[in-house]
């Protein structure tokens, strides 16, 4: 049994997307309310995009968690690249149609008309940039037929502006862009996450200087922040066990933050 003060905070920052770990930050909360409102509108497709690590997947999971209580929602967080498999899985999960064979688009649309839901079922697609253009075109056709409503997330990278592609340009009716966290938001994120897990002592160790350094290293990226803090608390766990005299409990040592940065590849030695 690990009794370290830092083992619990360490595990909090494991890079796992869990809607129960969702931390409410003003800007993200605003985005989420917009997203929820958009889902209620008679839109066909809603696009959620942003740089990697801006919290798209978390928001999608949170949406799934919240909406699934009231209506039919299906989330595909690992892309199903094969078209036949994609439609078959959708038919099974949304309409309960079990078939071992791959089904065609026509079959799927016929199935959708046969089953009526009071509200259009919602399909949440994470990492939609991995789908082929052909499959995206079929998704568009399904949404045009109002068989399903899609909320998709996309990575917005510097190299390729996927949103500029035709099928997104013409069909997306609402798009929401997520940004990296500011220094203040990152502070709230870390503090809230720690306080939520009753790690008060550790939460008190973060001062402004520490937060600035973390923000500088991670550039406000939530995923990088999680990785960095996981590594940081792993270091603290080790020091607490082996050389506790080196730990000051009133503030985090910038040295250890930098070491964690080196460990996670955020800093180059």
């Amino acid at each position: 049994m690990d009794h370290s003060l830092f083992s619990k905070p360490r595990d909090l920052f494991l890079d796992i997307v869990n809607p129960r770990d969702y931390v409410q930050i003003d800007s993200v909360s605003h985005m989420y309310q917009n997203l929820k409102a958009s889902v209620q509108k008679p839109l066909k497709m809603i696009l959620l995009y942003g740089k990697p690590g801006t919290g798209k997947s978390m928001l999608l999971h949170k949406l799934h968690h919240d909406l699934s209580k009231h209506q039919k929602v299906f989330m595909i967080d690992i892309p199903i690249i094969d078209e036949g498999d994609f439609l078959r899985v959708l038919a099974q999960k949304i309409y309960g149609y079990v078939n071992r064979e791959a089904i065609t688009l026509t079959d799927f649309l016929e199935l959708s008309t046969a089953v009526n839901y009071p509200q259009s079922p919602i399909v949440l697609l994470d990492e939609a940039q991995l789908y082929s253009a052909l499959l995206m075109e079929k998704i568009r056709l399904i949404s045009d037929a109002r068989a399903l409503k899609f909320v998709i997330t996309l990575h917005k990278t510097e190299d390729e502006d996927i949103i500029a592609k035709e099928h997104f340009q013409t069909r997306i009716w609402e798009s929401i862009e997520l940004q990296n966290a500011s220094c203040e938001e990152l502070k709230i994120y870390i503090q809230k996450k720690l306080l939520k897990a009753n790690c008060f002592d550790v939460a008190n160790m973060f001062n402004e200087k520490n937060i600035k350094l973390i923000s500088k290293l991670t550039k406000g990226n939530y995923r990088e922040t999680n990785k960095l803090l996981f590594s940081l608390f792993s270091l603290y766990t080790w020091y607490e066990k082996n050389t506790p005299s080196k730990i000051k409990y009133n503030a985090l040592k910038p040295k250890y933050i930098e070491m964690a940065g080196i460990q996670t590849g955020l800093l180059r030695d």
Partner: peptide, 14 residues
Amino acid sequence: IDIHLLERRWIKYK
């Protein structure tokens, strides 16, 4: 984590 190696890397970085 190899702390000693990491500390050396940190010194190098500094």
